[in-house]
Design a protein around this nucleic acid. Sequence first.
DNA 1: ATTTATAATGAAAGTGTTTTCATCATAGGG
DNA 2: CCCTATGATGAAAACACTTTCATTATAAAT
Lengths: 332, 332
Amino acid sequence: MNNMKDRVTIYEVAVASGVSLATVSRVINNNSNVTEKTRKKVEETIARLGYKPSRLAQALATNKTTNIGIVIPSANYVYIANMLNGMTDEAKLRGYQLTLFVTNKSKEDALQVVEKVITSHVDGAIIFDDELDNEDINKLASYKIPLVVINNQVKGERLASINFDYEKKIKEVIQQYFKKGSKKMYFLHLHHSGRLLERIEKSFIDAHIKAGKNYGVFSIEDSYRQTYADFMEIFKSTKSGYFLAYRDSLAAAVINAAIDSGLRVPQDVEVLSIIGTKYVSIIRPQLSSLHLDLKEVGSKAVTMLSGLFTDEQKEKNLEFESTFVKRASTLF
Amino acid sequence: MNNMKDRVTIYEVAVASGVSLATVSRVINNNSNVTEKTRKKVEETIARLGYKPSRLAQALATNKTTNIGIVIPSANYVYIANMLNGMTDEAKLRGYQLTLFVTNKSKEDALQVVEKVITSHVDGAIIFDDELDNEDINKLASYKIPLVVINNQVKGERLASINFDYEKKIKEVIQQYFKKGSKKMYFLHLHHSGRLLERIEKSFIDAHIKAGKNYGVFSIEDSYRQTYADFMEIFKSTKSGYFLAYRDSLAAAVINAAIDSGLRVPQDVEVLSIIGTKYVSIIRPQLSSLHLDLKEVGSKAVTMLSGLFTDEQKEKNLEFESTFVKRASTLF
DNA sequence: ATTTATAATGAAAGTGTTTTCATCATAGGG
DNA sequence: CCCTATGATGAAAACACTTTCATTATAAAT
């Protein structure tokens, strides 16, 4: 139990098996230029001494850390956790470790994160964070760090990007709704919204303007509790509407407030959650949403990044298609 | 835009400012033994050249990576994401990076993870994963890796642990219920359950045996969809009961199935979610649950680990108290 | 002005690997 | 049996830092 080992180094292995460092290194790295006999011998002493190569020293010597950086606003969003899940799986498969860099939705933190990513010697990074603008991304790129950027169309030597088609899909949903539905549509604008949400909002507004329709925008906090409270107020005067919310939790706040105000969902109040997670079917009535396989996005991001390392990645701009799934919170 | 820099090293800074490596190193590390004049000079050329120390080389030289490993079954659980959130915040505050190691609830992967943690040269690790048993933990400890283990009472040189009082609280809840309630209680046993859930189940059974009461156990999948389907079956025959579920999503499955079977919650069916997350108040009726500030747990875990690095951590066994919060899914 | 104590600096070794290049051994071909 | 080509091995440099120890410069004290 108390057999505290000091780390055994490659040098000790070399001495113990009567060969040079180079040979031990070859054995470790499965280099073919080693006799079966010496390989056996070295492997035996490696096992006996419990030697494990130091990834640190390897990294310094090879300039490869097998670490990839993940830049996100927080680990606490369900849709980010979903992506993370796909990333960890794929990374494990490919032998990478994931290092987390969170910006907490603060520009100041984002700048720090950029510095940390640079000094951390990650082999590459996946960025899913609107707080990093093109300048930040170019800075990282200028340090030759391969990058997969999610939700921001970027171009460059070792840059790839993954984008979602939410804007297009929202437009389609709205246009479909114009044909059948009659409620006034409201967009839930977040105080601290990122580029994606802004683009979706623009898309929402454009669709209405183009169709000459009236619309509304409510500006809310990114909090279930606050949004619920806000909508308990709103539903005192507004008795119907079609509400587009960014997240399940916000959509749920609207639904619950509507029901608690004596309104019927979806007859009086319709709600669409834009980024649907697994909670869409837990919440009642079940949430209509745009569905995207975020786990797949995460896993694909790692795959693309891995492709960038070897210049094998040909398609550098991927678009993921979301699908509108009608559930019980909307009529159509 | 295309000013690709090769990484500038400490050597170039030294030459450019006409001092030795040692002096530059001193400036970087805020060593006081440097004249204001030379410091200025060096700092100026650092800025001019855009030099950033390589954390890799620093780590190799100092035997400190400022990296801490986080061992979890998956990033995809809400309660783990909550903890992760606390960890990332505290880690940022203290200048650590977080490296993720996920076991995917597989013993095989867990063994791999142990190896990776060892070779990754993390300064320490936080383990919240029942897949790692005492043997694994001792192995890590034998490599002198400071460890904070969540949900497993461990003792040792550089070991600390954080435990939850769920077992005690569940017993209390049950005993309280015996005084007022009359429904038969059912425990939802997960097929692939970890130690915590097993202990809670034992606690549940003990409380019933001690009181000479009848109880039931349903063995379910850890999946909302499957559990919902199972309970649509179960509620064809079982028309009432008090159900203890491990997670919100499973509790929600029971609730939704009950309602969809025409039963009333909480009049006919009562449901308690053991590990309550923010979804307890989103789901309707709102879920009674045990509440624990998991973000705080995460942040505390990092703090304790940091304390282990410097031997400043005195209390090595922390117990977090959960509180029973009655909401609408139970009568009392 | 001289000594002494202290602060500032540099040389060099150390951190644990990989990798290049040179050397040595071995087997195959004549 | 000798030569050559090829495969196996080792020495040493490289990776980018920190840190110890010795040395030099500076200021304070006499």
